[in-house]
Design a protein around this nucleic acid. Structure first.
Lengths: 240, 240
DNA sequence: CGGAAAATTGAGTACTCTCAACCAGCGTGG
DNA sequence: CCACGCTGGTTGAGAGTACTCAATTTTCCG
């Protein structure tokens, strides 16, 4: 196992969920993992595959998606560094959706047995993993609402609010300009819209002075108005 | 605690997920609970409330929903007897969505501490609970796809397929006519459509000989065609 | 049995989609 | 060093699925 990098981002993230002892932290840091670099747009997990490991995103972004029969793609979630992209596969035998790298990514591939072991041995770690998957599920629920009952403008504003808040929580909270490598086509696939309509809707958000989004950089010019436009209530993120 | 009824439906359900020893089963049966009868359409859990217990549906149907600011409602899942309606609340502190009784329901209200205790003490039970929440999450993901990337006809057919399969699994597998107390308005709220369009779409499914749905009874006349129409692949239900 | 809820029908509307062309940025290679 | 080609973004016009509003019929439930 190549350990030039470390699972420190994971420890940091989970410490935000629950109280971890030094021993817990050490146990996490000592999890065996293989490092993997994946190019942009490559598949990290495929639907239907038996599961053997779980991956932590160390650098870069990723997203989960499912394809429908007519070829359309629905993005189900985006992931930022420090997050597991397929934690549920520690328990489930077969993956029920695909995961793709959004940018070039650096991943830590943790074998399932090691994860099951640390979960059995360490209640606090187990609790952190529980919370991570439950918050994931809460986000999925909110996405059902987003694509089901909001119009295009609201949907996109909501998505942007969520991503900004998660980025803010994981890194420098003060920042107002974010590296944002998500294409309009991907925003469209996440919100259930077409790229063309996504484009027009983003323009309207820009025109109204809510955001700036160009060249892979997003800045929120008016958080209050963006949150209002996006019908955004952060409760579902369970940021204690 | 009133124990005129029993948690047998729960034992049955969880036995389908994982191997449970006699002791595990007994421990589940001995969980303390209060019985509760809730009238149709009453709220069982409210978004924003602190969580104190989890409820198993013993009789009747329930659904989870969230409301958006303009008043529209998105149904997030339906629940059938034997299922927990808010299992994630064993870990999360505040509920992030509402749960309503769809019919008059009979519930077992299990205090959170008892659940946390059995999870700490019994790995097999913990595993069953894990699986239940993870399969829930998988269903949410599929719903994101359903409302995000399928047209009205496909969405409704997909929803019907899911419900029939889950009913079939929980009860008499051979049945072809089902008690189906879900109104068209609720189907609309689950699929992100309006009641009027839902009505017309159901008519088209009936006209094409796929289903019969009237007076609270659903029968699937042509499962193959319904599944094809609904772009339905049952993998996401993780019925081993 | 009677009022309310649910289902149905009709007509007009609109939000979002489709198709298609065009522009801009950027990495690569001649 | 600039052209080329690709990907991503933008614009225009026309079409359609699903929505809105509103009235009517049917079914349910007290």
């Amino acid at each position: 196992m190549d350990q030039t990098s470390s699972l420190a981002p994971l420890v940091r993230r989970w410490s935000g969920y629950t109280e971890l002892s030094d021993e817990d932290r050490n146990a996490i840091q000592r999890l065996p993992f293989a490092e993997r670099i994946a190019p942009r747009e490559s598949y990290l997990v495929r639907e239907g595959e038996p599961t053997t490991s779980c991956m932590v995103l160390l650098k870069g972004f990723a997203y989960r998606q499912k394809l429908v029969t007519d070829g359309a793609r629905q993005i189900i979630s985006f992931h930022i560094p420090g997050e597991f992209i397929d934690l549920q596969n520690a328990i489930l035998d077969v993956s029920d959706h695909n995961v793709q790298a959004l940018t070039r990514t650096q991943l830590a591939v943790v074998p399932k047995p090691a994860l099951l072991e640390i979960m059995a041995a360490r209640p606090a770690v187990r609790r952190a993993i529980w919370l991570e998957t439950l918050i994931d599920a809460s986000i999925f629920r909110e996405w059902v609402v987003n694509v089901g009952r909001r119009d295009a403008r609201t949907r996109i504003a909501h998505l942007l609010c969520e991503l900004v808040l998660r980025l803010r929580r994981s890194g420098e909270a003060e920042r107002s300009v974010w590296e944002f490598p998500i294409t309009q086509e991907q925003i469209a696939d996440a919100t259930g819209l077409t790229p063309v309509h996504t484009n027009r809707t983003l323009q309207s958000l820009r025109r109204d002075g809510l955001i700036t989004l160009a060249n892979g950089e997003l800045s929120v010019l008016d958080w209050e108005k963006l949150a209002e436009t996006g019908d955004f209530n952060e409760r579902y993120l369970h940021h204690s």
